[in-house]
Simulated assay, not measured.
Amino acid sequence: MDQVIRQFVDLCVANTPAPEADVEAACVKAGISRDAFYDDLAWYVANEFAAGRLAFEDGDAAMNWMFGMAQFALPDLAFEVFSAFDDGEFDRPEVPGGNNPVALYTRPHIAEIIARGHTSNNSFKPNPLRGSA
C-alpha cells in the first residue's frame, strides 16, 4: 500500500491530485476502508516530512487534498497530521519567532505524532515559547 500512497502524494505534488474514483479503487483493491486509507496517507506524509524526504509545501498539498477528498471528516490520526501542516501555513508575527510556523508548530507536532506511533490522541498543544525545532 505504501507504493500506492506514494503515488497519490506524488500526484498532489505535481498539482494533479487523483479523483475520488481512484481513491475508492485503491481502497477496494487493498481491502481497506476510506478512513484507513486517510490514516495511512497521513502517516506516510508525516514520516516522509520528518525524514526530510518531503518538503513542507508538498506534504501540505497532500494533506489539503486529502481533507477536501474526505469532505472535511477525517479520522483522528489523519486530522491530527492535517492540523500539524495547517498550523505551519501562516506566520504569527505576534509570537516570538512566529516567522517560522513550520519550525514552531508543524515539526514538533509531527515529531510527537511519530513518537506515539500510528495512533492519535489529539493532545498536541503548540507552545511557541519552548523554542523551535
Rank of each mutant, 00 (worst) to 15 (best):
A61L: 10
P128V: 00
R6G: 00
F90N: 14
A103M: 10
E89N: 06
M69V: 10
D2G: 15
A21N: 05
A111S: 07
V95S: 09
K29Y: 08
R107Y: 06
G88Q: 04
T119N: 10
I110K: 03
I32N: 08
D86C: 08
A62N: 04
L104E: 02
A111Q: 12
G59L: 10
R107P: 07
L129I: 13
I5F: 06
P128L: 08
P75M: 05
N122L: 07
E57P: 03
H109Y: 04
H118T: 01
R107D: 12
F56Q: 03
F56D: 04
A84R: 01
R53G: 15
N122P: 00
A103K: 00
E112C: 11
S123Q: 07
D22K: 13
P108A: 09
P96S: 02
Q3K: 15
P96N: 11
F82D: 11
Y44F: 13
A78L: 05
Q7E: 15
D76Q: 14
A36M: 10
I5E: 00
F79P: 10
F82S: 02
K125R: 14
V95T: 10
P75F: 00
F90W: 12
P93V: 10
A115C: 06
N99D: 15
I114Q: 00
D60C: 15
T16S: 12
V13S: 08
T119G: 07
L74Y: 01
A50G: 05
E80R: 02
F79G: 11
F67Q: 09
Q71A: 13
E24I: 15
V95G: 07
A25I: 04
Q71F: 09
G117K: 09
F49G: 03
Q71W: 07
V4W: 05
E80N: 01
N100V: 00
D22A: 11
R107F: 08
D86T: 10
F49L: 01
L41V: 05
Y38L: 06
M63W: 00
P19Q: 15
I32Y: 12
C27Q: 10
A30C: 12
L129K: 15
F56N: 06
V45Y: 01
S33K: 11
G97F: 01
P17Q: 10
W43P: 03
Y38M: 09
C12H: 02
L129A: 14
E80C: 05
D91M: 12
D22N: 06
D87E: 09
K125D: 09
S33T: 09
A103C: 10
N99P: 01
I110G: 07
P75D: 11
A62Y: 01
A103I: 00
E48N: 12
A21L: 08
V9Q: 02
R116C: 11
R92Q: 11
R130T: 14
A62K: 13
V95I: 14
V102H: 09
A84K: 01
D76Y: 01
L41G: 03
N122H: 06
G88K: 00
S83W: 03
A73H: 09
F49P: 02
G88D: 06
N47Q: 14
F72S: 11
E20G: 04
G31I: 06
F72Y: 14
A78F: 02
L41T: 14
I110R: 02
L54Q: 01
F49T: 05
Y105F: 11
G52H: 10
F72V: 04
Q71N: 13
G131M: 03
P19S: 12
V81W: 00
G68S: 13
